[in-house]
Amino acid sequence: MQQKTNLIANLGIKLSLVIGLFFVLFNLQGYFSPKRSQFLESYSPTINGTQPLAMKGGDPYIRALMRTITASEANVTQPYHVIYGNKYVADLTRHPELCVPIIAGPNVGNCTTAAGRYQMLDFTWAEKAKSYHPDPDGLLWWKSYSFEPEYQDAVVYGWLKDSQAWGVDIPQLLREGKVEEVLKLLSGTWTSLGYGIETNSMSKYLPQIYQNMLQEELS
């Protein structure tokens, strides 16, 4: 009788493990599925600029800046879906929150949750979405924030326009032609903008990319 009870218990444990594994794999398939959104699949990254924003409207100077940030942070065919290491996620109902090991640069050995067009860390997204997300789900303290392309844009747009957040009026600086001053200011947040700790092959082109993007946004 005792052996039969143990056998049933062992079978129950194994069945629970199988169900648990299936559940994990089922949930992860949304992250790594190749069936990503078809937003500008034909776009090819260049040193001349980046693809248009998903968000409509807004200040063209800030829009051009956002596209410039993309050039060194996520200049790929699917910037809204990219995570560190040029991997992609499909599910943008929320920030992916996947901590990927860093394999190069000053932070090698750590992991990063950077995701999306602006490579926002999970805790940065959570903080800024509370202030700038235009359409959160839920009530009071139980809110969630969609990470869909237009919302990634909206949160960063609101953040960049907020003079209290940066201590300066970024739109005004841009109108005065002080793009390099702005890039330097933002390099503590986006470290690839030419004045941070992670410059890359695109960093030196950013001032010209900004001018290219501004002409597009003003036209």
Score class of each variant (00 low, 15 high):
N10G: 06
K14L: 14
I19P: 03
G20K: 09
L21W: 04
F22I: 15
L25S: 09
L25E: 05
N27R: 14
L28P: 05
L28M: 13
Y31N: 11
P34G: 07
R36E: 08
F39I: 12
L40N: 10
L40R: 05
Y43W: 15
I47G: 04
I47K: 07
N48G: 03
G49V: 14
T50P: 06
Q51S: 07
Q51E: 09
M55K: 04
M55S: 05
M55C: 03
K56V: 10
K56S: 13
G58D: 00
D59W: 08
Y61T: 13
Y61C: 13
T68V: 05
I69M: 00
T70V: 14
T70R: 01
V76N: 07
V76W: 05
Y80D: 04
H81T: 08
I83M: 05
G85V: 09
K87S: 08
A90W: 07
D91H: 00
H95W: 06
P96D: 13
P96C: 13
C99V: 12
I102C: 08
A104Q: 13
A104W: 13
V108G: 00
C111T: 15
T113E: 08
A115G: 02
Q119Y: 11
M120V: 02
T124F: 02
A126Y: 02
K128N: 11
A129I: 04
K130V: 10
W142G: 08
Y145K: 06
F147Q: 03
E150W: 05
E150S: 10
Q152H: 09
V155D: 10
Y157E: 07
L160Q: 04
S163G: 10
Q164C: 01
Q164D: 11
A165R: 04
G167C: 09
D169V: 09
V179Q: 03
V179Y: 01
V182R: 02
K184Y: 12
G188Q: 11
Y195W: 14
G196R: 12
T199L: 05
S203C: 10
S203G: 08
L214P: 15
L214I: 12
E216Q: 14
E216V: 12
S219F: 14
S219M: 12
